[in-house]
């Protein structure tokens, strides 16, 4: 089934039609918790991308030797390993960004999206496809985080990527954590609306 899927399709699927944040609604905690700036979203996105790609590839490579009965523990172990690696790397080389993300880097280990991709895709498909799939999902997550971060940073602190663009802070509310819920909720609705609109315009044609 996946054989006829090109790498491009696998990537776009993760970014658009099965976006982990807006469509699958998985791993919402960081989307709400630390998406206050584009940079935060980007950093965590990178971390997730790394863990997703490496875990997918690892599991896909060893799919034939993984005993089905210990499938889930193996996934957990794999994810935990790569999370530890990225955690250590970030703590060592990017201490400031790491401090901002706090506990969430470590919490990647409990992200449903990663386990789900391993279970649904990587344990069945070839290494190459798994890589592209992981990349797509990771990018989808990263882009989602960055979009939310963009809105919140722009409205909350009047800046983008830390650069002051508005010169004032329009609505401090948006960098408050509770605004994360609103922004994610409104954006989900917005994407739903686009989908409905798109389908309707297609139907009319």
């Amino acid at each position: 089934m996946a054989n006829d899927k090109s790498s491009m399709q696998l990537i776009t699927r993760g970014i658009l039609s099965e976006n982990p944040i807006f469509k699958l609604a998985l791993s919402m905690c960081p989307a709400v918790g630390i998406s206050t700036t584009v940079m935060n979203g980007f950093m965590l996105g990178i971390a997730v991308l790394f863990v997703q790609v490496f875990s997918s590839v690892t599991i896909s490579t060893f799919k034939n030797v993984i005993h089905p009965r210990i499938r889930i523990p193996t996934y957990t172990l794999t994810i935990a390993t790569w999370v530890t690696v990225i955690d250590l790397v970030l703590a060592a080389y990017l201490p400031e960004a790491y401090a901002k993300m706090g506990i969430f880097v470590k919490l990647i280990v409990a992200f449903a999206i990663i386990t789900m991709r391993l279970e649904m895709f990587a344990c069945k498909e070839p290494v190459k496809d798994s890589f592209w799939d992981g990349l797509g999902m990771g990018l989808g997550f990263m882009i989602g985080m960055m979009v939310i971060g963009f809105v919140r940073e722009l409205l909350g602190s009047g800046a983008i990527f830390g650069f002051d663009v508005l010169g004032f802070k329009p609505l401090l509310f948006f960098i408050l954590p509770s605004a994360g819920f609103f922004v994610v909720g409104l954006m989900m609705a917005f994407f739903n609306w686009i989908e409905v609109y798109y389908k309707r315009s297609k139907g009319l044609k």
């Binding site: 709400v32 819920f181 609103f182 909720g185 739903n192």
Partner: peptide
């Protein structure tokens, strides 16, 4: 368009 998760998020935001 708000049915399901989006509205749940907005309610959760109000709780927050």
């Amino acid at each position: 368009t708000f049915k399901g998760l989006p509205i749940a998020f907005i309610v959760a935001g109000q709780f927050a």
